Amino acid sequence: MALSILYWLNFVSGTKKLHQKSEVAVKSEHVLKFLYDPELRHVQGRVQASMRDRSYHINITLGDNYTVEDSICDCVNGQDKCHHKASLLLYGYKNVSKTDVRESWIKHPKSGPPKKTMTMDELFPPTPKLANYSHAMDSF
């Protein structure tokens, strides 16, 4: 997985309600957008509100030792811990593979043998009938 579960565990530590609400939000597919940049250690996304017809923008900066260094959410509790932030961290663990991370496919390409270049004659060899006809034309 691209995002360690430890970020989520440290964020929800000691708050059972936050733990449960974030799990419900991920299972209910309330995470609408998720972007993760491992170089900047930044997570950004959008999470649907639980009971309302709106969504919240979240920005999270990941710190050392699997902690959240800084975070903000548009919701009422956005300056503190909220389940929208926790949902984004949990979603990142459960749903993001290494190929979803920005430019990871460029950094670690699969190695393989170089492709052989073929000429047109190799791709489309003349049929035996045409080959005999062309030799017959040369003798005239």
Rank of each mutant, 00 (worst) to 15 (best):
T67D: 12
T67R: 13
R46N: 12
K21D: 12
S50P: 03
F34N: 01
V12H: 11
V24P: 04
H57S: 05
I5M: 15
E29W: 01
F11C: 10
V76D: 01
K21T: 11
L9M: 15
V31D: 07
V68E: 03
E23V: 15
L32W: 00
R54I: 02
Y7L: 13
D53Y: 01
S22L: 14
K16F: 01
A49R: 02
K17I: 07
A2Q: 02
C75P: 10
R41Y: 06
P38V: 04
A49C: 03
Y36D: 01
E69M: 04
L35M: 10
Q20V: 15
Y7W: 12
D53L: 01
V43F: 13
E23Q: 15
R52D: 08
F11V: 13
L9T: 13
K33E: 12
T67S: 14
V68W: 07
S13P: 10
R52G: 04
L9F: 15
G78T: 06
D74Y: 00
N59E: 03
V12F: 12
S50W: 02
V26Q: 09
K17H: 00
I5R: 15
D74R: 04
V12N: 09
D70G: 00
V68N: 03
E39H: 04
R46F: 06
F11M: 12
I72V: 03
D37R: 09
V68M: 04
Q44A: 11
Q44V: 09
E29R: 04
L9A: 15
G63M: 05
L62C: 11
L6S: 10
F34R: 03
H30W: 05
R46I: 07
D37H: 06
L35P: 02
F34T: 07
A2W: 06
N65G: 11
W8N: 12
D53F: 02
N77A: 07
V31F: 07
K17V: 08
V31E: 05
V12G: 11
D70S: 04
N10Y: 14
E23D: 13
